[in-house]
Design a binder for these strands. Structure first.
Lengths: 234, 234
DNA sequence: CTGGCATTTCATCAGTTGATGAAAAAAGGC
DNA sequence: GCCTTTTTTCATCAACTGATGAAATGCCAG
């Protein structure tokens, strides 16, 4: 499913190392294999041996590079997290600079979500697996909650603060709740579960991120506005 | 965490059956224990022995009642699924009958979501665990996707059809996509991950379903209206 | 009070799991 | 061409996994 399998790996018959070039590639190959499997079956649903088989590598090599299984998972999670945060930060920078005094709720939300959609579309299967993984971690209580917070809280706070600039009268309570609704929708869309395909009898496809783009920003923006406007119980 | 642990279970020292009364209770106790553990750690993250320990029961008894581990999981999933569907169906019946010709998008959505919030608030920890479990299954690709569809598709189709009555010009595409956004928000809210607590620095609490109720219906309704109004690419 | 039946426990199995230490193989400096 | 370092493989471990068969226990019908 990923870039994996790495060809039958032409047994060099002996042990040892085949070539220096493959050295760094192997680390990435292992991460790719682990990423795809973790995304599909979750942390506990995957064995080191499965990862090793998919990567075409001995199990001991995985421990040699990454240590314990949990550390492998963290490495998978970490690898793309920073890229994601950077892309999002730049997107919001660009929006703020290009719309001085004319920012809208929908504009801010688009700047927040668009980079993820773009990356998922252009980044290949690896990124799709990664989003599915994050979605899974996102609503597995008591798991990765701390990791989640450490990496993604800053961007979220920035989103909320920017929205507060656009709608100064909005209560933080309302903004945080609205964000939670947003992130639920966004993560489900990004993880492309295929559920909407069967549900809509082929009318919609979860892989159609263009369709998501055409609706999600407007959906969330209108939701935010409605929550702010209603402003329940102070 | 659940109703579990069942007291130190006053070892009867011998084997055999202690009393008929406990007979049916034990099945429920086992399901409660399994439910809580599966919700927290996922299917593969839980061992039969853990379930047995939490229920205060021998592992063999679990197999005696439920068969294989996967069947235990299905039993957990099934136990509350029908109750859920019935409650939702009745809620939508009631709304349709009480608002002949005056239904609104928000009203329909409320009729669809409200029963779940109510049950979660009044039903105790068991229901909370169950919702976390469903949320987890909902975006674990290739797992329970078929189960998910079998039990929840009918209600969703009813929601979509009712919305089509309220907004006859809306395209099914838009309704299905909007539903997916809705279900992402709803499931994340119901699973009470605690993420919003730390994110908002104590300003919001994921256990505060009243706060969800006061915002989610309006949020989703406004989102639906916006998507329908924009009506992207036909 | 006795024999059948549903329930519960014990003991155990074969298979799998994550992990490690030591050996083997290549690269690279000299 | 030797010696060191890095990478890869092999062989193996103790712990745990899901699962089962058989025995033990108490309940109830007769």
């Amino acid at each position: 499913m990923t870039t994996q399998v790495r060809a039958p790996r032409t047994k060099p018959a002996g042990r040892g190392r085949p070539a220096k070039a493959t050295g760094r590639d192997l680390k990435e190959t292992i991460l790719d294999a682990a990423e795809g499997l973790f995304a599909r079956h979750g942390f506990h649903g995957v064995t080191i041996r499965q990862v090793a088989a998919e990567a075409g590598v001995d199990t001991a090599l995985i421990h040699y590079y990454f240590g314990a299984k949990r550390e492998l998972f963290d490495s998978v999670f970490l690898r793309r997290a920073e890229i994601l945060n950077t892309a999002r930060g730049l997107s919001m920078d660009a929006y703020e600079k290009s719309h001085p005094g004319t920012m809208t709720v929908e504009g801010v939300i688009e700047a927040f979500i668009e980079p993820l959609l773009r990356i998922s579309q252009d980044g290949g299967q690896g990124w799709k697996s990664y989003f599915a993984l994050v979605a899974q971690v996102n609503n597995t209580p008591a798991w990765g909650g701390e990791t989640m917070a450490r990496f993604f809280d800053p961007v979220v706070h920035r989103l909320v603060e920017t929205l507060k600039v656009v709608r100064p009268d909005a209560a933080y309570r309302d903004l945080y709740w609205s964000y939670q609704f947003l992130t639920g929708s966004m993560m489900l869309a990004l993880s492309e579960t295929g559920r909407i395909d069967s549900l809509s009898d082929g009318e919609c496809h979860s892989s159609d991120l263009g369709a998501v783009r055409a609706r999600l920003f407007a959906y969330c923006a209108a939701g935010f506005e409605a929550v702010i406007a209603r402003a329940p119980q102070g």
